[in-house]
């Protein structure tokens, strides 16, 4: 048990170090997020009333797209240089491997996006009372996006042009997260029923994703 835990932390530390030294990933996702959400006023017009009405939804859509953008690298880099083969041969259970990868992805992509979202809340004139509920909702909901994304990433690992297919597989499954996330942001409470439903979706994916992604990795590596 302790050995498993130390293997997982070692792997997590490796992934975080890699993303910190190589740069790119997380920061690029944040910049993409800011740019894509800044496009909204150009699309719908600069009216403050309209913008503040759709702000929460646009921020959530932006987060979904930005998380998606970095997903195709989740297992791909390790697949290309052979690390994934070694990881699959090690004693580490497949589910644990998936959980570590998702944690690293969330820490390097999800968390920076959440940190950046207040800036976009200002730009889109999100009503003051909604920022807290939005941030809590993002904290609760973004792990589900990493976990659902891992299913798509593990299914398409090793495929040429897997990125586009990945979004096709993952986006329909993100619908509940998006719905409950936006509802949570509009609930004007820091912990509303919508937040709880969002947490339920995250907990469910926490069970489903390691199983499914583990199976998908196994079949793709043989």
């Amino acid at each position: 048990m302790f050995e498993l835990f130390s293997t997982m932390t070692a792997l997590l530390r490796r992934d975080l170090t890699l993303s910190a030294r190589l740069g790119g990933g997380g920061l690029l996702a944040v910049i993409f997020f800011i740019i894509v959400v800044s496009m909204v006023p150009f699309g719908v017009g600069p009216e403050g009333a309209l913008l503040s009405k759709i702000a929460a939804g646009m921020i959530w859509v932006g987060v979904v797209l930005s998380m998606l953008l970095s997903l195709d690298r989740l297992f791909q880099a390790d697949f290309e240089d052979g690390t994934l083969d070694l990881l699959m041969l090690s004693s580490l259970p497949k589910g644990a491997l998936v959980l570590v990868k998702c944690t690293a992805h969330w820490l390097t992509t999800g968390l920076p996006l959440i940190v950046a979202s207040p800036i976009l809340a200002i730009l889109l004139q999100l009503p003051d009372g909604l920022l807290g509920p939005l941030l809590v909702g993002l904290l609760v909901g973004t792990p589900a996006m990493s976990l659902i994304g891992a299913i798509g990433a593990s299914l398409t690992v090793g495929l040429r042009r897997g990125g586009l297919l990945l979004s096709l597989l993952v986006l329909p499954l993100q619908v509940p997260v998006l719905i409950f996330g936006v509802a949570a942001a509009k609930s004007e409470a820091l912990w509303s029923p919508s937040h709880m439903l969002l947490a339920a979706v995250t907990l469910m994916t926490l069970v489903v994703s390691p199983l499914a992604s583990g199976a998908a990795l196994k079949l793709n590596m043989t």
């Binding site: 299913i151 597989l169 329909p172 499954l173 509940p176 979706v201 469910m204 499914a212």
Partner: peptide
Amino acid sequence: VLCLVGVVNIPVI
């Protein structure tokens, strides 16, 4: 695998 993930998610969706 994808189909089974989908069928688990359909009620939630």
